[in-house]
């Protein structure tokens, strides 16, 4: 876990270091936009660091598109 946490910190330090100037000049709307992106990112970081088996983005896609796509593939394979 410490190793994965170090990876996260390293990546954040890199991103913040390169964007340092831009982050200082951000307007209120920009800050709101970036905060909106931080929410899913924080969730993914927790999943990555803890190796948690929590619902993820592909699980949602699988929930929505999984049944129809598998039905079509099943039909084409001759199983349905």
């Amino acid at each position: 876990m410490a190793e994965r946490l170090a990876v996260v910190l390293l990546l954040f330090a890199l991103a913040a270091g390169i964007q340092r100037g831009e982050l200082r000049r951000m307007s209120a709307r920009d800050k709101f936009g970036l905060a909106a992106l931080m929410v899913p990112m924080a969730y993914l970081i927790v999943i990555f660091v803890l190796q948690a088996d929590w619902p993820n983005w592909p699980d949602l896609l699988r929930l929505v598109f999984g049944p129809p796509s598998e039905r079509i593939v099943g039909m084409l394979k001759g199983a349905v």
Binding site: L11, F12, A15, I18, Q19, E22, M26, S27, R29, D30, F32, G33, L34, A36, L37, M38, P40, M41, L44, I45, I47, F48, N56, W57, P58
Partner: peptide
Amino acid sequence: CLGLSDKRLSVFPLMLICIFLSLTMF
């Protein structure tokens, strides 16, 4: 969609999202 004043602002946040997605999605 977010109405950012500079398009480059969202590059790194999206990069981080994609990195963690790629590590957890399969």
